[in-house]
Each structure stands twice: as C-alpha cells, then as structure tokens.
Amino acid sequence: MNIVLWIIAGVLAAAFLGAGLLKLSQPKEKLAASGMGWAESFGAGTVKLIGALEVLAAVGLILPALLDVVPVLVPLAALGLVLVMIGAAVTHARRKESQAIVINVVLLILAVVVVWGRFGPYSFTS
C-alpha cells in the first residue's frame, strides 16, 4: 500500500503542479478563454492564490517524505487539496459544469486516500 500511496501522491503532485503553474503564469482572461471559464468568477489575485496553493500542495505531497523532513506535511498537503477540490466542485456546480465536477471528485478521492493512508496505517512514522 505504501507504493500505491506514493503513486497517488505523485499523480496528484504532477496534476496540481501543472495546474498551479498555469494559473500563476497566465492572466485570468487567458485562462478563462482557454477552458477555465470559472476564472471569470474570481479576481486575478484569487486565481493566483489558488495556483500558489496548488503548487505548494504539489511540493508538500512529495518533498517532505522524500527528504524525510517533517513528513507529516504530506497528509496535511493532501488535506489542503481536499479543501481546494471541495471549493472547486462547488464553483463548478454553481456554473453547471458537470464534467469538471467529475474531475474534482476523482482528485478529491485520491487526496482523501493519501490523507487516510498517511495519517493512518501507512504513516511515515511507522
């Protein structure tokens, strides 16, 4: 199960690193025009904040455990992604973007598995 948790954390980290860097590097108008219509509902600073949180979570899913420095940050990063995905699902539900909600729920479930595994039976302190 430890290997499965590492794989899930790696997939989540890759997805959120890419998404976060995109939000940090592009103006919200360009994001909205390229398939992230939800960005229209938020200020530019909020979009950048979401991107920064996603990048920090991506780093937090991998580096603490890899470097064996405060590995409790791994499930905390995953918990942060759970909260981000809940917010994203609510936003997409309000905008009636059902396909995006499915993606949010899948990412949320993967993050919950990491939270459960790393806080529970497969923590790095065991």
Rank of each mutant, 00 (worst) to 15 (best):
V72S: 14
L73I: 14
A15I: 09
I8A: 04
H92L: 00
L61N: 07
A39G: 12
P27M: 12
L24N: 10
S41L: 14
I3P: 00
K30R: 14
L107T: 11
I8V: 15
V102Y: 00
G10C: 11
L56A: 15
L110A: 15
Q99N: 13
V4E: 04
L24S: 14
E29G: 02
G45H: 12
F42D: 02
T125W: 12
N104W: 03
K30M: 13
E97C: 07
R118E: 00
L53V: 04
A88D: 12
L22G: 04
R118C: 05
V70Q: 10
V69M: 02
V70Y: 07
I62W: 00
W6Y: 09
L63K: 05
S34E: 15
V74C: 08
G43Q: 09
A111V: 03
P121K: 14
F16N: 14
L49P: 03
M36H: 13
L56S: 11
A89N: 12
A44P: 07
G117E: 10
I109M: 08
F16E: 13
I101C: 05
L61D: 08
I62A: 03
L67Y: 13
V105T: 04
L61A: 04
G51A: 08
H92M: 11
V105K: 04
V11F: 10
I86S: 11
L63E: 02
T125P: 00
A111P: 04
V115E: 05
L53K: 06
V113Y: 10
R118M: 01
S41A: 15
L17V: 01
S123C: 11
L53G: 14
V112F: 03
W38K: 13
V114E: 00
F124R: 08
A13Q: 13
A32H: 11
L61Y: 00
I101T: 00
K28R: 15
Q99L: 12
T125C: 02
Q99S: 14
R118Y: 07
A52H: 09
S98K: 13
V47H: 11
L49Y: 12
T46D: 03
L61R: 02
V47C: 08
R94L: 12
R118D: 07
W116N: 06
L108P: 05
A39D: 06
A88F: 03
A89E: 00
P64F: 04
L56N: 00
